[in-house]
Simulated scan of single mutants.
Amino acid sequence: MVSRKIVIKNVSGLHLRPTGVLCNEAIKYKSSIKFHFGNTTSNAKSVLSVLGACIKCGDEVEFICEGPDEQEALDGIIGVIESGLGE
């Protein structure tokens, strides 16, 4: 299991378009990819789960990857977030 915290920088937070980019990246990997925000844990491979977390600009999220390609998955997720999630 690997994890990392990151602050969401997108001005509009994780609305539908950046959520789609995040989920499309997450489904590329065999590992389980979840994230903690507030008191909840959500599945990063589910658009509804990500949207339901109501993540805003400036929120800190911890991504947790577990599985055969966990480090690659974490690097991919962090990379796509740092690149702006398509915005």
Rank of each mutant, 00 (worst) to 15 (best):
D59E: 14
V2I: 13
I8A: 14
V50M: 05
Y29D: 01
T41P: 05
E66C: 06
I55A: 03
V21I: 15
S46K: 06
G52Y: 00
I8M: 04
L85M: 09
I77P: 14
E25N: 07
I64T: 10
I27F: 08
G13Y: 05
Y29L: 08
C54W: 08
T41D: 06
I6V: 15
G86Y: 14
K5I: 07
G58N: 08
K9S: 14
T41K: 02
A44L: 01
K34V: 07
I81A: 06
N39I: 10
V47S: 04
V21G: 04
G20Q: 11
S32L: 13
A44Y: 03
L16V: 15
G86F: 12
D75I: 09
L22G: 09
P68D: 13
G86C: 13
H36E: 15
L14P: 04
P18W: 06
D69A: 06
K9N: 13
E62R: 11
Q71H: 13
D59T: 07
N10V: 08
K45Y: 00
K9A: 12
D69N: 09
E62M: 12
E72F: 01
G84I: 00
E70H: 14
L22E: 00
R4Y: 04
G84D: 12
H36I: 14
I77V: 15
G76D: 04
S31K: 00
T19D: 02
N39V: 12
K56C: 12
S46E: 01
Y29H: 06
A26H: 00
C57L: 05
F35Y: 06
T40P: 00
P68F: 10
V11G: 11
P68H: 09
I33F: 03
K45A: 04
M1D: 08
I55S: 04
P18E: 06
L85N: 03
S49L: 01
S3M: 09
T41N: 13
S42D: 10
A26N: 06
H15S: 04
Q71V: 10
Y29S: 07
E60S: 13
V7Q: 12
K34A: 08
Y29T: 11
V61Y: 00
S46F: 03
G76R: 08
L14Y: 01
V11P: 14
G52Q: 10
K45F: 00
E82Y: 05
I8P: 03
V80F: 03
I8L: 10
V21Q: 02
K30I: 12
T41L: 05
E72R: 09
N24T: 14
